[in-house]
Write a protein that binds this DNA or RNA. Structure first.
Ligand SMILES: [Mn+2]
Ligand SMILES: [Mn+2]
Ligand SMILES: [Zn+2]
Ligand SMILES: [Zn+2]
Lengths: 136, 136
DNA sequence: ATGCAAATGATAATTATTATCATATGAAAA
DNA sequence: TTTTCATATGATAATAATTATCATTTGCAT
């Protein structure tokens, strides 16, 4: 009662394959650009449509934002984003949340995710030389 | 070297005052609607402009999303969002993050925030009666 | 009063995403 | 096989949220 047999099409195969091949977290548009060589006639909306579909089926991850980014990895993990260059990297660290307050509020916990911001090694080095960094 | 003397205008006073008076987390547009009675001639973009400005000055909080929501409370706290009705409530619970992996990756930790999703009491009750819930 | 920098509000532009719809596709039925 | 038919696709338009532009206004400092 979860994954309702999603039909395999050429575009779906390629979109999913391409996303899974990346260690980065591309936007729909970036992925669209990437697959153009393999699928010259694909439309951007097909990419959006299928990424959204995959996400709802639990096949891929999604990092909400403006723009949203997608993630080929679905093993539970978090992300750290560089506040300077915007890069997002995987972070495999368990973050336990105490549910006492959640229970008190009367909520039934469903899921949670930690959004971590930091300065990556590269930007950190550069900030030592330059005057100004940052563009959150 | 932080808050660079933000000029006080009538619209700024009212926008900030109104936001601070709310326990909810309004969107720019909702706040705009709210202040119409006090500032009939204000423009939506002034609301956006100043909320963004306040946020950058650290005077208010911002919950990124589509649409973004603003928060008059700046004491460190997290939020829990109902996956059914979309309501966002404050959650005062300390969530410690182990920085070992972050250090390993070479990042300098800046901030982090936990996005918790759950089913609120009201929606939970209703889901007992109704067939379908959910619209993440 | 006058000058002037900053803020405002009207408007247009942009960005990201979603909706609409005619056509294409491809597996299953006949 | 041809036909059927549900689903997917891609072109296009629409929408939502936010941001940019710019002429005008505001209100402190001369
Ligand atoms: Mn990831
Ligand atoms: Mn809050
Ligand atoms: Zn960086
Ligand atoms: Zn609810």
């Amino acid at each position: 009662m979860k994954t309702k047999n999603i039909k395999v099409t050429k575009q779906r195969e390629i979109i999913l394959d391409e996303l899974r091949s990346l260690v980065t977290h591309p936007t729909a548009d970036e992925l669209y650009t990437n697959i153009k060589s393999r699928l010259p006639r694909v439309g951007l909306c097909t990419v959006y449509r299928n990424l959204e579909r995959f996400y709802k089926e639990g096949l891929i991850g999604k990092i909400k934002g403006k723009p949203c980014r997608y993630d080929g990895k679905i093993e539970s993990h978090n992300h750290i984003k560089c506040i300077n260059c915007g890069k997002i990297e995987d972070l495999f660290v368990d973050i336990p949340v105490d549910t006492v307050e959640i229970d008190k509020l009367g909520y039934k916990l469903h899921s949670y995710k930690v959004e971590i911001n930091g300065l990556c090694r590269k930007c950190n080095k550069e900030s030592g030389r330059k005057k100004h960094v940052n563009k959150t």
